[in-house]
């Protein structure tokens, strides 16, 4: 039946639109990759090109020779993403589970306290002053993990709703009758049953950590602590500075290192893991979008 509902010309048109769209999305990435494998001279003379005018891996060789800082930044990104995501999952689920229990005293008040954080926030100035002045977070690794990213009310509410819909109260009651403590119930029953929501939220959180440069820009000025994105941000801001103050081609020789192709190479290295891993997790990601579809 559903075959009759489709129309051939419309489908053809759809394919054309989507192919054009996919090109519009992929071509910029191609330009980035291609410029990272173009020799610096060709880049300066001919400009950016989709097909390298003069193929060269010098940017990547340069990165390899100066890899200690890059590896360090990579390590920090991995560490922050790992620790942050795990901690986030633990505290989010530990907050969501009691809230999902209809018998919890004060449930409405607690829920309101969480929802309110989604409606109102203090903004950058007080947040910055509290983290810096009160907690001394400046130039520590905490700055990349804690502010803004560790937990959010939206994820707590999604998890709570998942628990309410998918874990029958009878299961919890019978475990209680068998003498299980609340922590045992959380660990042995709730967590194993909540794999789908944990995967979805974990993925969203991990991507946020991986992509975050804002916390680094605000709270760090020690390059030793820079994560990949923070490093990229710093370099992007420097390029403009160089090209603004550049007096023309003559000065180019002086500022060759690290050249444009090197920066593009670092951007490629920074974007590649997400681009290559994400198709495998797309299912969970799409789930996250449509779950909260509307509630963001």
């Amino acid at each position: 039946m559903s075959k009759h509902l489709k129309s051939k010309p419309l489908m053809f048109f759809s394919h054309i639109v989507f192919i054009a769209l996919c090109l519009a999305i992929i071509l910029p990435f191609l330009l980035l990759i291609s410029s990272s494998v173009t020799s610096e001279e060709a880049l300066v003379v001919h400009g950016y090109n989709f097909i390298p005018k003069q193929f060269s891996l010098e940017a990547y060789e340069y990165l390899w020779r100066h890899s200690s800082q890059l590896f360090r930044a990579y390590g920090i990104t991995l560490l922050v993403t790992g620790v942050g995501t795990l901690t986030s999952l633990v505290i989010t689920s530990m907050l969501a589970y009691p809230l999902s229990r209809y018998d919890l005293p004060g449930r409405r008040v607690f829920t309101f306290l969480i929802v309110f954080t989604m409606l109102f926030n203090g903004g950058l100035v007080p947040t910055y002053l509290i983290y810096v002045r009160l907690f001394g977070i400046k130039n520590t690794l905490w700055a990349l993990i804690v502010p803004g990213l560790l937990m959010n009310g939206f994820h707590v509410m999604l998890t709570r709703t998942f628990f309410q819909k998918n874990i029958p109260p009878a299961v919890i009651e019978s475990a209680q009758c068998d003498g299980a403590t609340e922590f045992q119930i959380y660990r042995k029953i709730i967590l194993p049953l909540s794999l789908p929501i944990m995967a979805t939220i974990g993925l969203m959180t991990a991507i946020r950590y991986w992509n975050d440069w804002y916390n680094g820009m605000i709270y760090l000025n020690d390059p030793q602590l820079y994560s990949l994105q923070v490093m990229l941000n710093e370099m992007l801001m420097n390029i403009r500075f160089l090209s603004d103050t550049n007096l023309g081609g003559a000065a180019m020789g002086a500022v060759r290192i690290p050249g444009t192709s090197v920066r593009m190479a670092i951007a490629v290295v920074g974007a590649l893991p997400i681009i290559s891993i994400y198709p495998f997790f797309q299912k969970y990601f799409v789930q996250g979008i449509t779950l909260g579809s509307v509630k963001e």
């Binding site: 203090g122 907690f135 502010p147 937990m151």
Partner: peptide, 17 residues
């Protein structure tokens, strides 16, 4: 169980408010 989550909300959301 809810303590860590609420401590975080206190620091990250309520104090700045």
């Amino acid at each position: 169980m809810m303590v860590p989550g609420f401590i975080y909300l206190l620091i990250n959301n309520y104090l700045p408010m």
